[in-house]
C-alpha cells in the first residue's frame, strides 16, 4: 500500500468528476491510497502566470507547503495535467536557487522547503509496483479498444520543467493501455494543444485545434481517444458536438470517437461498471453503450485467441509426435539388416 498526498484540483468534483471517480476506483483496486492535502487552493493554472509571474508561483507553492506540512516524505499526485504543470513549475522555480526559495517563502508567508516531489497520475501508474498490481487485477482485457492516447501540452512542456516523457511521442499512457489489453494506435497529435485554455476567450481559432486532434486520431484508426487531463477531456468531449454540427453544414462526416480518461478504461479492465466509473455522465451520450459493445467484442476476441492458441498447441504437439515417430522408424531402419547401403 503506497500513500500519496493528493491534490484533486478544482475540476475534481465538477467537470472532472468521471476522472475522480475512476481514479478512486482504480487506486483502491491496486492498493494506492490518496490522502487529500487539507485546505489546498487553486493552482492558478496559466491564468495566474499570465497575470503575474509571482502569482503563478505563489498559488501552487501554498499547496506545496501544505503538502509538506501533511507529510514531507510523500510525493504529491496531481491527476489534472494543468495542476501538475503549475505545481511542478513552481517547485522547479523554488528549487533553482536559494533566492527563489526565499522569495516564494516571503510571498506565501509559510514555512517551505520545496522538498516534495510532484507526480502526475500517469507517473504513478508507471511505477513497477502499480504495473505489477494492474497486471494481476485485470479481469477484462480491452482487446477491442483501439485507443489514441492523447497527452496534451501540460504533461510534457516546458520540457526542462516536466522531464517526464518524450515531448513529441510520449509512451507512458500507451504502455498502460497496452497493459490493460488495449491497442494504442500510432498517431501524431499526442502532444498537440487542444486549446482548452483559450476556448472561452478566442473560441473560433481554438475550435480548429480540437478538430485536428479528432481528425488525426480517426485517420490513424482509433475507435476512442484517451486523456489524462480533465480540461482536455471536457474540451474534446463537450465541444465535438458543435464541431460535428459545423462539419455537417460543410458536408463533412461527423467524428464518432468517444473520449475517455485513461483511468476509466483501466477501471473497465478491472471490472468496474460505467456508473461507478463516471462514464454515464459524459457529454457524448454514446459512451456507456460504446463500452458495453467493446467489452463484448473484447471477450469474443479473447475467446477466439484462446481457441487459436489451443489449436496452435495441438498442431505443435502433433508435429512433435510425427517427428518422434519418424525418428523411431529411422532408428529401426538402421538396425534392420535390409536397411542402409553397407
Amino acid at each position: 500500500m503506497t500513500t500519496y498526498s493528493y491534490f484533486p484540483g478544482c475540476s475534481a468534483n465538477s467537470t472532472g468528476i468521471s476522472y475522480t471517480k475512476s481514479a478512486d476506483f482504480v487506486c483502491k483496486k491496486i492498493g494506492i491510497e490518496l490522502e487529500e492535502i487539507p485546505e489546498w487552493c487553486c493552482c492558478g493554472t496559466s491564468a495566474a502566470k499570465l497575470t503575474s509571474y509571482d502569482l503563478g508561483y505563489a498559488l501552487p507553492s501554498r499547496s506545496l507547503a501544505l503538502a509538506e506540512k501533511l507529510d514531507a516524505s510523500r510525493p504529491i499526485v496531481a491527476p489534472c495535467a494543468g495542476c501538475y504543470a503549475a505545481l511542478k513549475d513552481a517547485l522547479v522555480y523554488a528549487q533553482a536557487s536559494k533566492e527563489n526559495l526565499e522569495h516564494v517563502r516571503d510571498m506565501i508567508n509559510m514555512p517551505y522547503e520545496a522538498s516534495v516531489q510532484v507526480m502526475n497520475l500517469l507517473e504513478v501508474f508507471s511505477t513497477q509496483e502499480a504495473k505489477d498490481a494492474l497486471q494481476q487485477q485485470i479481469t477484462k482485457p480491452l482487446s477491442a479498444f483501439k485507443v489514441a492516447c492523447y497527452y496534451g501540452c501540460a504533461l510534457v512542456r516546458p520540457v526542462e520543467v516536466c522531464k517526464f516523457d518524450d515531448p513529441e511521442d510520449p509512451q507512458s499512457m500507451d504502455t498502460i493501455m497496452r497493459l490493460a489489453g488495449a491497442e494504442p494506435i500510432d498517431w501524431s497529435f499526442k502532444t498537440e494543444c487542444c486549446g482548452a485554455a483559450q476556448q472561452m476567450a478566442v473560441p473560433k481559432p481554438s475550435r480548429v485545434l480540437i478538430e485536428r486532434i479528432f481528425q488525426n486520431a480517426e485517420a490513424n484508426g482509433a475507435n476512442a481517444i484517451v486523456t489524462a487531463c480533465p480540461l482536455c477531456w471536457m474540451n474534446l468531449d463537450m465541444r465535438v458536438k458543435a464541431i460535428n454540427k459545423e462539419r455537417a453544414e460543410a458536408g463533412k462526416p461527423a467524428f464518432d470517437l468517444p473520449v475517455f480518461f485513461f483511468t476509466e478504461l483501466l477501471g473497465v479492465a478491472l471490472g468496474g461498471d460505467a456508473k461507478t466509473l463516471g462514464i454515464d455522465v459524459h457529454f457524448q451520450p454514446g459512451a456507456p453503450a460504446f463500452i458495453d459493445q467493446k467489452v463484448k467484442e473484447s471477450a469474443q476476441i479473447e475467446e477466439e485467441r484462446k481457441l487459436a492458441a489451443a489449436e496452435e498447441a495441438r498442431k505443435l504437439e502433433e508435429r512433435a509426435a510425427k517427428l518422434a515417430a519418424k525418428k523411431q522408424a529411422k532408428a529401426e531402419d538402421v538396425h534392420s539388416p535390409q536397411g542402409g547401403e553397407q
Binding site: Y53, Y57, R62, A96, S97, H103
Partner: peptide, 20 residues
C-alpha cells in the same frame, strides 16, 4: 488566506523572473 496572498503578491506587482 488565499485572498490575502493574492492581494499581497499583486500589490507588490510581481514581475518575478522566469525560473532560471
Amino acid at each position: 488566506e488565499v485572498s490575502a496572498l493574492i492581494d499581497r503578491v499583486l500589490q507588490n506587482n510581481g514581475a518575478a523572473k522566469e525560473a532560471p
